[in-house]
């Protein structure tokens, strides 16, 4: 997979979802139906370590979104 293009696709797709800022890993697999889940997982985690994406954890489940986007970031006094 072309990594640079894949990064753009991820950012594009996430920006396109109105009213929702946090996504399951599975949602990212769906952006790249041809790729193995493991490959997509690696890229998503790399994008977190680069600061483009960030994790949101419910404790039991982890969601992923664009860094700084979303309601609870502000509601929880964390900005």
């Amino acid at each position: 997979m072309d990594e640079a293009a894949a990064r753009d696709i991820i950012v594009e797709k996430l920006k396109g979802k109105k009213g929702k800022s946090k996504f399951y890993l599975k949602d990212f697999y769906a952006f790249f139906p041809e790729e193995k889940p493991r490959t997509v997982k690696k890229l998503v985690n790399t994008m977190v370590s680069e600061g483009t994406l960030e994790y949101w954890s419910s404790g039991s489940t982890t969601l992923i979104g664009l860094k700084g986007v979303g309601k609870q970031a502000h509601a929880e006094d964390e900005d």
């Binding site: 985690n45 960030e54 994790y55 949101w56 954890s57 982890t62 609870q72 929880e76 964390e78």
Partner: peptide, 17 residues
């Protein structure tokens, strides 16, 4: 209350807000 975005950089687990 539960809290979402806390953690150490690059880790998705290990910290619960």
């Amino acid at each position: 209350k539960h809290g979402g975005i806390v953690g150490v950089f690059g880790y998705g687990g290990g910290v619960i807000g």
